[in-house]
Amino acid sequence: MRIFKILILITVVATLGACTSKFKTYNGPEVTRVLIFKEQRKLYLMNGDNYLRAYDIELGFAPAGHKEFEGDGRTPEGEYTIDRRNPNSAFYLSIGISYPNANDRAAARALGKSPGGDIFIHGGRRPGDPKRPDWTAGCISVSNKQMRDIYAMVNDGTSISIFP
């Protein structure tokens, strides 16, 4: 009986040790800015002028040009801020981008449309999502493993610049 209890205890400890949390901690230099280069499909985490990390990205299903209205499939371009976090995202983890700003709302209104919203940097595809490159509805996607790093490193209030 004693051996059985020890085996159960070892199994429980091994199982708990094998579980990995999607939440990481980061104690390195502060990320002061996120840079997105749509044409190169790259995301850079910066500390001042110093590059910290780079990631390959996927974009909205119509990647060329600035997002004009809800449903156009484009990823916004311009200056924004990381303004929220979603630990329960349908896309693993996500951090929100402050799109639309006042200019985005005015431009969409001039077209008689809604600018849309809910633009995030988020984890990878879910089952059933398109298998083609640039598959999101306007968000920026990285792998789930990369999203764990980004979620830990980037704080709300961080500037994000999205270039064509």
Rank of each mutant, 00 (worst) to 15 (best):
F4A: 14
K5M: 14
L9W: 12
I10E: 08
T11F: 15
A14T: 13
A14S: 12
T15K: 05
A18R: 10
A18K: 08
K22I: 10
F23W: 12
T25H: 12
N27M: 08
G28A: 01
E30D: 14
E30F: 05
T32H: 02
T32D: 00
V34D: 00
K38V: 06
E39R: 14
K42R: 14
L43M: 15
L43R: 00
L45C: 02
G48E: 14
N50W: 07
L52E: 04
L52R: 06
A54Y: 06
Y55H: 12
D56C: 10
I57R: 04
I57C: 04
F61S: 03
P63L: 03
P63H: 04
H66S: 12
K67G: 06
K67A: 11
E68H: 10
E68Q: 15
E68T: 09
E68S: 11
F69D: 02
E70Y: 15
G71R: 02
G71A: 03
G73T: 03
G73A: 04
R74Y: 02
E77L: 07
G78F: 06
G78D: 11
T81V: 13
I82P: 00
R85Q: 07
R85W: 00
N86F: 12
N88T: 11
N88P: 00
F91G: 02
Y92M: 09
L93S: 08
S94M: 07
S94E: 04
S94V: 10
S94G: 14
I97R: 01
S98C: 06
P100V: 08
A102W: 04
A102H: 11
D104Q: 07
R105V: 05
R105W: 00
A106S: 14
A108V: 03
A110M: 10
A110S: 14
A110K: 15
A110L: 09
L111Y: 08
G112A: 01
K113D: 02
K113T: 02
S114K: 13
P115C: 07
I119Q: 05
I119Y: 04
G124I: 11
R126L: 14
P127F: 09
G128W: 06
G128C: 04
D129L: 04
K131N: 13
K131W: 12
R132W: 03
D134I: 10
T136R: 00
C139T: 06
C139V: 03
C139S: 05
I140T: 02
S141E: 05
V142L: 11
V142S: 09
S143W: 04
S143Q: 04
K145G: 01
